[in-house]
Design a protein around this nucleic acid. Structure first.
Length: 233
DNA sequence: AAGACATCCAACCGCAAAGCA
DNA sequence: CTGCTTTGCGGTTGGATGTCT
């Protein structure tokens, strides 16, 4: 992160000092937030309005919760993300005291563990090298996974996840194990009774015309690189 | 103990929408 | 309607810190 003295407008960049925080807090307490361009002009801070807003919203605003997210909050994030995708600010509205930036960071570090491999996959696809396109095509109905059926292998050299083995994802599991979903890179396992899973099955998958690929399914659940997170029909 | 690697998170950037003259 | 400015959002970066070997 560059800590140079700013852009062509001369705004200061980089980490905020306690003095700057104090100045910003005092100004906003006096004049209220909003009008960020005015804040940057008249507060005495040599910071852009954008920077002031970000600092206030994500760090200085009263009522912000500090510390780790609770399991309840984590659950809310998971389910709301399933509904809305990367609408961090929308999700944040349901978590008082949490910021979109915080939620976004949390999601990326806890749920999007293999960012770079997926990005590399996407890039390779785009470049035409092509991941081994898993040939599993299934009807939208009857899409089931068991945790042990996750058809992923880890590429030790690059840490990439390659889905290479065919598995029967239509056969309901035996015994009394609950059906559900898990990403191969995650420890979390979401039972099919989860609203998140139900949402996808009932709304997304069912709305697809006929077939999806396993890759599509994983991508829709876990690959946030797609800004339109969801199964493409 | 030290270097490599992984994770966290504050802050920046680009873009689009909203507001306004 | 049009163009400019401001605001807000999502994606990304990179420094700090923790963990592993």
């Amino acid at each position: 992160m560059s800590c140079n003295s700013g852009s062509e407008q001369g705004w200061r960049k980089g980490p905020w000092t306690p003095e700057e925080d104090k100045l910003l807090s005092e100004y906003i307490n006096l004049h209220g937030d909003g009008r960020w361009s005015s804040v940057s002009k008249y507060s005495g801070l040599n910071r852009s309005g954008k920077s002031c807003r970000l600092r206030w919203v994500n760090y200085l605003r009263p009522g912000l919760k500090k510390g780790n997210l609770t399991p309840q909050e984590e659950g809310i994030i998971i389910e709301l993300h399933a509904l809305w995708g990367n609408k961090w600010s929308t999700i944040a509205r349901y978590l008082p005291g949490r910021t979109d930036n915080e939620i976004k960071n949390y999601w990326r570090t806890h749920f999007k563990i293999k960012t770079r491999p997926y990005q590399k996959q996407a890039r390779r696809r785009a470049e035409g090298h092509g991941m081994p396109n898993n040939s599993i095509q299934q009807t939208a109905e009857n899409v089931h996974f068991m945790k042990n059926d996750i058809p992923a292998t880890q590429d030790d050299d690059h840490g990439e996840v390659n889905i290479t083995e065919k598995v029967d994802i239509t056969t309901p599991p035996q015994g009394n194990q609950e059906m559900g979903f898990a990403h191969p890179n995650m420890t979390n396992y979401y039972p099919s009774s989860s609203p998140m899973i139900n949402y996808y099955i009932n709304q997304e998958i069912a709305s697809c015309s006929d077939t999806i690929t396993l890759d599509d399914l994983w991508g829709s659940f876990w690959n946030l690189d797609d800004p339109h997170t969801g199964i493409r029909c």
